[in-house]
Amino acid sequence: MAIFIDLLLNALVIGILLGGFYAALSIGLSITFGLLDVVNIAHPTLLILGAFIAFFLNSTWGIDPVLAGLIATPLFFAIGWVIYQIYYNAFEKSGAESLRGLAFFFGLLFIIEVGLIIQFGVDHRLVEAWYIGESANIVIGSEIDVAIPYRLLVAFVVAVAATLAIQVYLTRTFFGRAVRAVAQDMMALRLMGVDPIKVKRIAFAMGVATAGIGGALMIIVLPIEPSVGRLYIGNVFAIVVLGGLGSISGTLLAAIIIGIAESIVATFFGPSWSPAVSFGILLAVLALRPEGLFGKTAGAH
């Protein structure tokens, strides 16, 4: 029994930490897909790109991965800016975004992934930092020993800080409110004399910019190879949909739920089952409660 409680406690703690980390991966999509309604399925692959930039900066100049992620963020902002510009001109303007827009992002996902394979190969890459490899142990009683890996703790702290910062930005600043207004009623915004496309472009770029720091956290938490991006598609979309589209705090909560579910499955059934967890949750949410646990109606509109 003590062993079971020990395993369960460990799984819960790891799950919560994982959840915070997942929130950082999903927050960008929560903005681009949840608020702006741009189905950026390339987001997880952009995260992998971020991870490889952190790997490159870390292995070449020994830059701390978190710092590397911050350095990469402006670059991702620019990438997001360009992507939205193309997306808007080619698809959104003519109202042809559904089929062709999806194919566009799929092609993008694919180009980035294969580009990374050609450049870096299919080996798993990892970064070096003082907090990687160590863990804090909290001992309760004689048999319960909860281990907290520092790498997850660092990712959790940075992720939660970034998520809260975005939440505050979106709710307290003028521009943040404009972004949420775009999500609610573009026409009204236009009548107020604000250019909604400009707002969307900046907001989309912000969403993509989170891939810089998110990717760095990713490679801190686990070794990365180019094709793992696709595994995270289920993860991030499950979180964004479960959290209720566009709700930042909902995203954080949903991320923690999925983190715990994955961690418990990995502990009791083996880690190779964990990709199926988030995808399974995603399918279940889509089938049963598409508006998410905490959100507005996402169904047929």
């Binding site: 399925i41 559904s98 089929l99 949909v241 598409p290 996402a298």
Partner: peptide, 18 residues
């Protein structure tokens, strides 16, 4: 399919991984 088209797209991605 009772939802918007994007959800079908995402679900098919999910399906392949599961």
């Amino acid at each position: 399919l009772r939802l918007r088209g994007v959800y079908f797209a995402i679900a098919t991605l999910a399906l392949a991984i599961i």
